[in-house]
Each structure stands twice: as C-alpha cells, then as structure tokens.
C-alpha cells in the first residue's frame, strides 16, 4: 500500500489546537467557545446532532468561515486568519459535507484539482496512483464525469481528492452521509487503513457507533459547546451518556 500522507510520529505532539473558538452566522451563534486539540496520528471524532456546530467547526478550521473570537493553531502556527489556499498548503485538507465533487469534470481531473494548492506537483501522478490503489473503483471510472458516479463512489472521490493535497491533517465531514450501510462499512474500512498508515483525522459524524469504532478520542457537541469528551473506548462503554449528551438530556 503506497503512503498517501507523510507519516507523523504518533504520540503526544499536538498538531491542531483550537482555543476558545466562537463563530457566528450573522446574529446566530453557531460555536460558543470551543477548545479542543488533535495529536499527531490520532483520529478524533466530533459527534453531535444537527446544528450542534460540527460542520461549522471544520469549515472554520479550513478557513472557509472566519471565527469571531478564539485561536486556531496548526503545527504551532496561527491559522485562523489565513485564507483557505494557505491552510491547504500548510497541510490541512477538507473533505466537505455532501461530497461536493466537481460534477462535469472527470474523476482524474477531480483528483488533479485536489493537488491544486500544492507547490510541488512532481509526485502528482504517483499520488494519483496511490488513490487508485486505495479505491480501485475510481481507477475503473477515471475518465467518467464525477457527477455520474454513485453516492459511494463520489464519497471515495471526495476522500481521494482531499488525500491528493498530501495532508498532515484530514478534515472529514460526514463521510457516511446518505450512503447505504454496506457502503458506509467499506468507506470506514478504508479510513481505518489510512489511520493505520498514520494519517491524522478530525472526523465529523452523526453515526455514533461507526465513528467511535474508528476514533481514538471524541468530543460530543451540543448547540455550539462541548457537552462531553473522552477516549473513544470509554465513550463506547457509556453509550447512554453519549446519547444523552447528544439529546441534551444530561444534567
């Protein structure tokens, strides 16, 4: 299996740290003071119901939305005022909610665009081969317009496109959204392979069990605040507590 992302020494090195983040949509507060961190090699899940602020969190980290207050640092550099292109170049790739592939472009073109922000494109071809090795279905469909792929294939493409940026941190927004259960299993199997290769991920999910199966740690968000956090193994054991935090019944 070719390596798609540069391996980072797993352990205690904090690669992403978010401190007291607040984000507003107009007058509505979407995130009301969240602090979290992701260590190198770790998979961290952000759980929560609709409107909890999970997607907003990812969009703010990747620079698509500007925060109102708080700080985001990536590899010891403040990134909360940088434009998205700079953030991608620093090594954060965002696979957005709802896949958002470039529908009229071919699979191969979509992957090539994933490397658009990289200064060094000499290994582009090899990286694309790496993505095809990870998702053989994409190789079969490389000349096909992305809009004609099935939902699962589009999700693979969205993942592959993010990997083409050679990220040090992968932001995944609901990779299971709208997919059949078997397809979800196959996508998460691939994510587990990536995890085994040492890819650091911040994963947004509504599907608690699937997410906790992959993640090392998790934060449960509710109405823009952290309601609960801990190691995935502990949260798995306390499923009731997680569900309660989700629904807001926890006192």
């Amino acid at each position: 299996m070719p390596r798609l992302a540069p391996p980072l020494a797993p352990g205690e090195e904090t690669i992403l740290s978010v401190d007291g983040l607040k984000v507003n949509y107009g007058a509505v507060a979407a995130i009301r003071g969240i602090s979290l961190d992701v260590k190198a090699g770790e998979v961290v899940a952000l759980l929560g119901a609709n409107g909890a602020g999970k997607s907003t969190m990812l969009r703010t980290i990747s620079g698509l939305i500007r925060p109102r207050a708080g700080a985001i640092s990536f590899a010891d550099e403040r990134i909360d005022r940088l434009p998205p292109a700079r953030i991608v170049r620093l090594g954060i790739a965002h696979s957005p909610e709802g896949r958002r592939v470039f529908g009229s472009l071919s699979v191969a073109e979509n992957l090539r665009l994933g490397a658009a922000a990289r200064p060094d494109r000499s290994t582009m071809e090899a990286d694309r081969e790496g993505v095809y090795a990870l998702f053989p279905r994409l190789r079969e469909r490389m000349g096909q317009a992305a809009g004609t792929l099935s939902g699962g294939e589009q999700q693979m493409l969205a993942l592959g496109r993010a990997l083409m940026a050679k990220p040090k941190l992968l932001l995944l927004d609901e990779p299971s959204l709208g997919l059949a259960p078997l397809v979800i299993v196959s996508i998460f199997k691939t994510l587990a392979e990536l995890k085994a290769q040492g890819v650091t991920m911040l994963l947004v999910e509504q599907n608690i069990t699937t997410a906790l199966g992959l993640a090392d740690r998790a934060y449960v968000l509710r109405t823009g605040e952290i309601a609960l956090s801990g190691a995935a193994s502990e949260l798995r054991a306390n499923y009731e507590e997680v569900a309660a935090a989700y629904l807001g019944a926890r006192g």
Binding site: A85, L113, A116, A117
Partner: peptide
C-alpha cells in the same frame, strides 16, 4: 471549471 462546478469545494481544495 472547478469554480463553476462548486465554489465551496474549490475553496476547500485551495483554489
């Protein structure tokens, strides 16, 4: 073309 197809996705890949 990427900008035409999806502005948010284009920004997310750093265009």
């Amino acid at each position: 073309l990427s900008v035409r197809e999806d502005v948010i996705a284009a920004r997310a890949v750093g265009i």
